[in-house]
Design a protein around this nucleic acid. Sequence first.
RNA 1: CGAGUCGGUCGGGCGGCCGCGUCGGCCCGGGACGCACCUGGUGUGCGGUCCGGGUCGCCGAGGAAAGUCCGGGCUCCACAGGGCAGGGUGGUUGCCAACGGCAACCCGGCGCGAGCCGCGGGACAGUGCCACAGAGAACAGACCGCCUCCGCCACUCCGGCGGCGGAGGUCAGGGUGAAACGGUGGUGUAAGAGACCACCAGCGCCCCGGGUGACCGGGGCGGCUCGGUAAACCCCACCCGGAGCAAGGUCGAGAGCGCCGGUCGCGAGACCGGCGUGCGCAGGCGUUCGAGGGCUGCCCGCCCGAGCCUGCGGGUGGACCGCUGGAGUGUGCCGGUGACGGCACACCGAGAUGGAUGGUCGCCGAACGGGAGUGCCGAGAGGCGCCCGGGAACAGAACCCGGCUUACAGACCGACUCGUCCG
RNA 2: UGGGGUAUGGUGUAAUUGGCAACACUACGGAUUCUGAUUCCGUCAUUCUAGGUUCGAGUCCUAGUACCCCAG
Length: 127
Amino acid sequence: MLPTGSRLHTAADFAAVLRHGRRAGAGTLVVHLWNRAPGGVPTGTARAGFVVSRKTGNSVVRHRITRRLRPLVRRHLTHLPSGVDLVVRALPAAANASSADLGHDLDAALRTAARRAGTPVGHGTRP
RNA sequence: CGAGUCGGUCGGGCGGCCGCGUCGGCCCGGGACGCACCUGGUGUGCGGUCCGGGUCGCCGAGGAAAGUCCGGGCUCCACAGGGCAGGGUGGUUGCCAACGGCAACCCGGCGCGAGCCGCGGGACAGUGCCACAGAGAACAGACCGCCUCCGCCACUCCGGCGGCGGAGGUCAGGGUGAAACGGUGGUGUAAGAGACCACCAGCGCCCCGGGUGACCGGGGCGGCUCGGUAAACCCCACCCGGAGCAAGGUCGAGAGCGCCGGUCGCGAGACCGGCGUGCGCAGGCGUUCGAGGGCUGCCCGCCCGAGCCUGCGGGUGGACCGCUGGAGUGUGCCGGUGACGGCACACCGAGAUGGAUGGUCGCCGAACGGGAGUGCCGAGAGGCGCCCGGGAACAGAACCCGGCUUACAGACCGACUCGUCCG
RNA sequence: UGGGGUAUGGUGUAAUUGGCAACACUACGGAUUCUGAUUCCGUCAUUCUAGGUUCGAGUCCUAGUACCCCAG
């Protein structure tokens, strides 16, 4: 589990990011990126949340996807500017994707989303 | 050795790096509180408490955590009672907190057997249904056949015999069907038939014996045979309040309203702070005539009772408790055929909240697939061994238990049955 | 968490008390035509799965699978 300050907590948080954020997809997942404070007022650290639909698989499959995504997202979270919310939505194809696949797709999706949002995003150090 | 039955246990292991949650210890910082001290500052120290951070340590998914099919605990709402309706269960005796669960036994069916399977009460309380086929299907029926009698015709070795038609008798035989006035043998008869007899099967009643009981064994009598379906309606016996941890509780916030104080204003009033209550508007029904609620539906009766219902708008939508120590787990002894019960000792084994219990890498690794073949056993098939590949099933706590059902790669242990061979 | 519903040819729907699974469209094959369209004929079902009751199950019972809906 990510630290409390780095997580999205309520349905309203998720709805705001999915509604207003920039979207970018890559193979197994879709990334939504939204800056809560565009004026530049720092409102805390970057936060992240995960969405895995029931169509993806049963509970074991869904939980495994979240567990694999969590450390991948954690690496990016420290490089995101404060006030940025991130929602990672896993597609059914993620059910039988390895961690390397997910990490590759996450990097690509984050790059395009950040370019569209005009937010500078530092690259996570990937092996 | 092969084939199989039942019960039980486990359900990948080790390590490196990174990471998460609860609880506890230590350290640091902060908030309010209490106490103490003085140089009387919103100061310093101490104490417990709350929050945040760091660090160390313990522990951290399952046999089904699943489906949510039953039964309970817990919480709230309730509850004088009666009748009808509704739902559930269905051999007997036990076990259990309870159950639709479990055990043993009975009955029926299957299997050579160990064993397995069964919604397994009632069809003389009543109603309904039994298609098609078939002559006839529910207090049945004469199509073919068999037999008797009558009429006509033909043949005749004069004894009869055959054909057609009609009137009857008959269910033995054929054929239909899931099911056809019980089966075999005889007596009897024109031919037949429980019409009669013997044995057997089955039904009902009675008696004796065994068993707590379901039921079993034996004997006698009776009428002579009397279908199936209740997972069709139904009858009988027994059981059944409702909702659910988003239950429910504590604290905080809150719009509106009321009161008090302060500031501004000549004033109406506006703003700020504190306290209390817990919102406003519209419509309908109702407080003697009783709305509404009370074991869900209906009726009778009884009780509570001043609010209730609908629509529109607004506020809060936070934290904590409940939350894990329980019909708990393990071992031993005792009672019981067993389910289970009793006693003693030991142990604490997850508590998340967009939701932790992991991510990644390396090594070892069962099933399984392929190969070399002849190292060992064997007549052979094959087995053990060797090499390569391969890499672990079903599945994730969400208040907690007892079951049931369903999914599941495999491994191991115990008891037993059948077959073959050897002694 | 609680409750309800559906599943039948490729698709959309029928099937009285249990008794021959029906209709329309599509697809395919054939006929008609010089060739097409139209028309006509024919073919296409494990009634979601497994088990049971019954002589007999789409229908009744039990268990499961998939999908959909409602309330908080």
